[in-house]
Design a protein around this nucleic acid. Structure first.
Lengths: 241, 241
DNA sequence: ATCAACATTTTGGTCGACCAATAGTTTGAA
DNA sequence: TTCAAACTATTGGTCGACCAAAATGTTGAT
């Protein structure tokens, strides 16, 4: 009879970088660090927290990505000038970031793309239109080939580019690959001839600079994906990883 | 007369990690690496690309964040199973990520929050409502104190939490600190008594589960910020860093 | 021939030491 | 006394070496 293994929960469940972030959070709450202050040197934190400097650096990278600190080369890292309560909440959020489930990804994509195409319709320039038309052309031509999905995505990427908002673009960049990976993995995405027409209509709307129409068309276009994701809601989590 | 210094442009303009990412991109385009493949070991890439392993690791972190590769502990990194053209475009986007300007940040926040509050109105549970009411209460009470901005933000954070979509939450987490940092830095944000009422009305709408109303109220609430950002459009770039 | 147990190799994870740029201090000429 | 130039100390950036887990290869009993 095999022994029952009681794994101690609080073993390494917390990633070392998250431990470091927690310590920094504590220092802020304790008043040792104030917003706008320069953080202690990486070496000092490393020995204070009893971890390697690598962990400190990774933690700082994460905090910098979320705009909480700013690292200046050869000089030091400073805490952004928000107030203490905001900082505390912010860092808590960073620590509590869950893994993304499929439905949340799709839902977010819906919102982003529906709005991105509106901006694209308002803002595209001749270069953008060239890319858009080329992408659409490739998509139509390759509908029966293996490149269909690729060219479908390229069209959506062109829209993200045409909206001339780097933040939008970055966020779509985060969301879309994850979605496509799941699609590809689960062999979803049956070729649907209606999709070609939908793309064509969206391109027309963009060309006419009719943001509202384009937006509405995109909403219809993506509704299928959202519905599908909803239908999968029963089998939860572990979508990525 | 001082000598004119001609700094060679292509010196270290490219971050070393971006160079690594470019090399990986080239390998994919050359067919050496295919989607789904395991990447060479970090050490191997390090000596092949003639950089330290640190650079490789940072590049892999970046690629993993954007969902392009997945690193398995003690095993290796694999390229996500997208097709070659998509991968190429994706990596190009990662390399071309610009710094975020204030207007783009505000515009994105507008879209995210207007939709987040709709979802929040539809999905909040008793715990969420508790947090929302507490946050709103603190905001009202502290309107004349230094904590006003902090509690304002806490309310918006509670909405992000209540929408029960981790992706939305993560994206708001990226956008809002940057915006607040700029606000704080430039001493914007004059206390406006109308804002209290706007918050109150939004909370009411959420409570009534009227997503559309809440969404509309949020749009009005944020319009001022958008207008302000637009008015600043003349003085461009270098908002952060 | 099969497959489980062991030993070896390979891998990403971690750490401490060195490098170059910056910040701070001292020095000395005006 | 002033202030700029030179020097020192501190900082983040980079690198190579070591660690433990995973993958692979080997062995030997069945």
């Amino acid at each position: 009879m095999p022994e029952i293994e009681l794994k101690t929960k609080n073993q390494t469940l917390e990633r070392p970088t998250d431990i470091v972030i927690s310590k920094i959070k504590e220092m802020i709450n304790a008043g040792v660090l104030k917003p706008g202050d320069k953080l202690p040197a990486e070496r000092k934190m490393a020995q204070d927290f009893e971890v390697g400097r690598t962990q400190i650096r990774e933690a700082l990278h994460k905090l910098e990505f979320y705009g909480i600190v700013k690292t200046l080369p050869q000089s030091g890292s400073v805490i952004n000038g928000l107030d203490i309560n905001t900082l505390d909440g912010l860092i808590s959020d960073v620590l509590n970031l869950q893994n993304y489930d499929f439905y949340s990804l799709v839902e977010t994509r819906f919102v982003l793309e529906v709005n991105a195409i509106r901006l694209c319709a308002q803002r595209w320039n001749s270069k953008d239109m060239e890319v858009l038309e080329k992408a659409h052309d490739n998509y139509v031509k390759s509908f029966d080939s293996a490149d269909r999905v690729s060219n479908d995505f390229a069209f959506h990427r062109a829209i993200a580019e045409g909206c001339h908002n780097p933040v939008f673009k970055a966020m779509l960049l985060i969301v879309i690959p994850d979605i496509m990976t799941i699609y590809q993995r689960d062999r979803i995405c049956a070729p649907n001839t209606a999709v070609v027409e939908e793309h064509t209509n969206m391109l027309k709307a963009i060309k006419m600079r009719d943001g509202e129409l384009a937006s509405r068309l995109m909403a219809e276009h993506l509704q299928g994906v959202v519905d599908f994701a909803k239908s999968r809601l029963t089998q939860p989590e572990n979508e990525l990883n």
